[in-house]
Design a protein around this nucleic acid. Sequence first.
DNA 1: TTGAAAGCGCTAACAT
DNA 2: ATGTTAGCGCTTTCAA
Lengths: 355, 355
Amino acid sequence: MVTQKDVAELAGVSFITVSRVINGETNVKEQTRRKVQEAIDKLGYAPSFAGQVLNSGRCNTIAILTPIPFYQSMRTFYLMQLISGIEAGCRKNHLDLLLGFAPEAGTDSTYDYLRPYRQKKVDGIIYVGLKQIPEEMIRELEVRKLPCVVIGDRPESDLVSWVDTDNYDAGYNTVKNIWDHGHRRIAFVGLRKEVYNANVIDRERGFIQALRDLGADYDPEDYIIRTDFDSPDLNVEVREKLKSFKEKPTAIFCCTDSCVPATVRGIRELGLKVPEDISIVGFDGFINSTYFELNTATNPQPLKEMGEKAMEILLHKIKKPSSEKETAVMKVPFQEGESLINLVHHERRHRGWRR
Amino acid sequence: MVTQKDVAELAGVSFITVSRVINGETNVKEQTRRKVQEAIDKLGYAPSFAGQVLNSGRCNTIAILTPIPFYQSMRTFYLMQLISGIEAGCRKNHLDLLLGFAPEAGTDSTYDYLRPYRQKKVDGIIYVGLKQIPEEMIRELEVRKLPCVVIGDRPESDLVSWVDTDNYDAGYNTVKNIWDHGHRRIAFVGLRKEVYNANVIDRERGFIQALRDLGADYDPEDYIIRTDFDSPDLNVEVREKLKSFKEKPTAIFCCTDSCVPATVRGIRELGLKVPEDISIVGFDGFINSTYFELNTATNPQPLKEMGEKAMEILLHKIKKPSSEKETAVMKVPFQEGESLINLVHHERRHRGWRR
DNA sequence: TTGAAAGCGCTAACAT
DNA sequence: ATGTTAGCGCTTTCAA
């Protein structure tokens, strides 16, 4: 490996002068600088990461840590888009990104996922939640004094900052939007209670409250279909639940776009059409025409911006470890789509299927 | 930060004894070891990454470097699944994964994507190709003596090993399979010539050669629809090209599953049905029922295995830098699906649309 | 079985 | 403007 010493020797100066040139210090004679620079170019010298870390205590690396599995599910889009925001922040600040994998239920528990942080291999962590941040991790953050920002959940600990979207609000507004399109019976495709996901729970709360406030003539809780992301039986679950309703919904609000295709399939299996018989509104903004035939109304989360915001907060904390916990709540806009129709124009059809 | 010195002080030994305990050396009295271990536990000491790197010259980190953008396109599934294989290898070998971003056309060219490698921040690189590995990167590999394995392309340089699938073979076999289902006019959805993708080019070559060998009564080259991944107009391009054919194909082989949904849409826009009027076969194995309504015949690439194989090769090279370039070609199996029908059973229908 | 000294590549602080 | 010294946390070598 080429070191400052090698460069110094070739240039006929001491190694400290090389260091000065590398760091762009001003107190070097122009002629010397040129000499050194030539030697650097000739040898292809670049300052070693290890030496710098040892000195500065910073390794200019941050970790993105997540329990989201890297499968071919739409959930990975959530992660991917966050990463693209985080990566933008890294670029700007000359940081590198370490990819960490937090344990998921059913995963190899012997895997020591905290090792890199114990070793101080990163300056900070962005934890992409959706699952709760593990207790032992919080303890580690405390011991190592590692800055951490969570995305998609709101941990109470003072040790972690977070960036989240206003899911209650977005859920509420979505229902209001659907209602404004003339729909009076709206169902919700949500998650089973045992699946922890603070975001979806909030969307569901918004769904329920909006319908109550709007004066719906049914109990919204009765129109919640509970399933799991990527469930292979999602279509069946939707279909059977739909069958069981006395009064059929004219619109379904899916807690995430991941559930939209299977929900549509379930509806079609009943011989019904989307959106003519049932309108669909999703959440997250994953669906696009590249892989789904229906232009879907949804609530696109500002994931890239969330990633960027998380980076910003993390950098504050890295630069000033004494700084306070920061939090940020971002709005989710509603986005129209062909999957949500205005009911007045289609009333006859709906009457038909309600019977 | 807690260092060996702190532990040594608390345990009343010299710091070198702490080092010995950490590294599990045998020449430490059991009683001393216990004393030291207690101090370690009490202080939550873990050996600092920086110190170890400086000493060993190894940073126990490998990079995955790719020009594939992190958007919500199916192409990211390719990357995701590779990563899951690579990650498995990292886990086994106590390595960490650095996520690198190679420049894509149209990207910020001021971004110094090679910095981490110049700094020796990683022990090796896995480059996920599909685009050619940049020349300046090969030069960097040479200067830094950095091991590198490419996935999805076959660079000639002796400096890089590679793992790839046999795309010519898979393309050839796919056509043969479709032919065996009774189809005699098969089209191909491929990429425009200016889009570099060695894999797809090989699939196309297989497509052409198979039809020639099978004695097709048309020139396969006339039945190639050229587009780009994720093109928003893919359906239009397919539709218009289909219209232009005198003799209509009864089956379409898509160079990647990414193109399947839009291809299906294009077909439907002509009032035709999949698979009744036109069968579809894809490639890669991205399509699944979670987000696409049609169970699609395809050629699932063994991506996870490829990632694992790449890791294996990379580790060889890291452990023994003098070792030779290694290459691996993996088979792609054909997978039946409802989107490909046996033509004899549906002949009437097909006659109908051919007219 | 334990410790002292040197050195990995770099920079900050202090000479010259 | 340039060089010397010391030290970051660790391991290797040599000494006790």
